[in-house]
């Protein structure tokens, strides 16, 4: 996960903001308790969304406790704990480990090697605890790296493994079949959106480092002519269409879930946060690096 799934803070109520933070901090502290303090640095917003979505689907009431935190030692803030939060923190570690492993295989950076060593112990433990999920996630990431090596030129084919991976992540197996079917379609579309928005976001870097990027191969970027900004202008419309289609399908799936708890926050993320992220990355609304953390 890459942290693209965020709420639109100005549109949240203050109460909702506190609850969102409680989930975010809950996942962070759960990582600390279950895996270790340094591992907390891998936390992403996506994991907080996963926790909140599943809790809402399972109708788990949000119980807030006020605690202090080593990151902000003086100010106490709200936190919430439950088994879903633990599940999300496990998934966060599994994906973070694989992400770092992928980085190390790409560029052999020492930083990645150290990070891998730190996460290795927790990852091994999780491979036993979530053996099924880990096996599928590994399979999908294996498919992805094969496609990348073959320089796959279909956007949809390249995005498929990650979409299928997210489908698996959202499919929490204690739910009934119908709900799981809906969650899988929601996950599939979120995964596709994440993969493609990340590909668009990385265009400049991938050109510089001559790395694989499905958008470069699909639209046959040849490096000549007016360069990257012209290339982006040419493909922007089509990419926007696909990204919004994914979000539209994800939203349709979401509307079929029996969510009650924290519905407003989830709607904020799915309808406003992710659209605003899309617009920002496609550089439609305001260009610039003015991204603020939540």
């Amino acid at each position: 996960m890459f942290g693209y799934i965020m709420p639109e803070k100005p549109e949240l109520k203050i109460k909702e903001y506190d609850i969102y933070r409680a989930y975010y901090c809950g996942v962070c502290k759960s990582i600390g308790k279950r895996h270790g303090q340094i591992e907390r640095m891998t936390l992403t917003y996506d994991a907080a969304f996963l926790a909140m979505l599943l809790c809402s689907t399972l109708n788990i009431e949000t119980k807030l406790v006020k605690e202090s935190c080593i990151v902000h030692p003086i100010k106490k803030s709200f936190v919430t704990y439950n088994e879903i939060i633990d599940y999300s923190s496990d998934i966060n570690i599994i994906l973070a480990y694989n992400n770092i492993k992928d980085k190390w295989e790409d560029d052999k950076s020492k930083v990645a090697l150290v990070a891998m060593a730190v996460l290795k112990k927790s990852y091994k433990k999780l491979m036993v605890e979530h053996s099924e999920k880990c096996a599928i996630i590994n399979k999908r990431l294996g498919d992805l790296s094969l496609l990348e090596k073959a320089k796959c030129d279909s956007i949809d084919a390249a995005a498929e493994p990650f979409a299928k991976l997210m489908e698996e992540v959202l499919d929490y197996n204690k739910l009934d079949d119908k709900t799981r079917q809906v969650l899988r379609w929601l996950g599939y579309n979120l995964g596709k959106w994440i993969y493609l928005i990340d590909a668009f976001d990385d265009l400049e870097d991938d050109i510089k480092s001559a790395s694989y990027n499905p958008l470069l191969t699909h639209f046959k970027y040849n490096g000549s002519g007016d360069g990257i900004s012209e290339f982006k202008n040419q493909i922007r419309g089509q990419i926007e269409f696909i990204l919004l289609y994914c979000l539209g399908e994800a939203a349709k799936a979401f509307e079929l879930l029996a969510t009650n708890e924290n519905k407003g926050i989830l709607e904020n993320i799915l309808y406003i946060g992710m659209l605003s992220k899309t617009d920002k990355i496609l550089c439609k609304r305001s260009c610039g690096k003015g991204e603020k953390s939540v």
């Binding site: 926007e240 919004l244 659209l275």
Partner: peptide, 12 residues
Amino acid sequence: NSNVYRGNANNR
């Protein structure tokens, strides 16, 4: 379809 999604977001 993608316009419907944007419309929904605008309504919110």
